[in-house]
Amino acid sequence: MMEAMFIYLATVCVVCAVLTVTLRQPVYNVLSLLTLFFHVAGLYVLLNAEFLAVVQIIVYAGAILVLYLFVLMLLNVRTQSRHLHRQWPFAVLILGAVGAMLVGALHSGVWGSASGESTAAAIHEIGDTQAIGLRLYTDYLLPFEVASLVLLVAMIGAIVLTKKSLIDDHIDQIKE
């Protein structure tokens, strides 16, 4: 049962990922990416990580992808006439290299078995939300804080970029 679910989810994931980069109509790209996100969320559910699954949908599907769609509609991107870009040999090269690395890593058994405290049983006992929270705010507090700082910097940068004219006006006013 679980394996069948996994095969279905993984297959749709791969198909949607390929469609995302190959379809010509930008809105279709976004839609296949949306489907991909949902199936990734499904994979998280299979891994007993409901919290991650839901957050995946809220953050990626509910917020980020909507903004993509927003931008697509505002810019009114024309559909590409050519199916493949000129860079496709490079893309295939890089893809092959990364794929080979992944296959090699899987075969070497580095990720062969899950280890550590957060086993499925442990997560089931305290609940996956609590498990993530505990890990995030104790062991990984510093990376978490650094990430939030980076996001803050990005946010301020965005404000500065978009409000540039206003600041210039203000400086002009002060000069006068």
Binding site: V27, F51, V54, I57, G62, V66, L69
Partner: peptide
């Protein structure tokens, strides 16, 4: 009785926006 029931509702409320945007587009 999902242990993330509340977030589940929120996740799908966000998805509802797609119907509106895509319908409009």
């Amino acid at each position: 009785d999902l242990n993330v029931g509340l977030l589940y509702i929120f996740a799908f409320a966000g998805v509802g926006a797609y119907g509106v945007i895509l319908g409009g587009w």
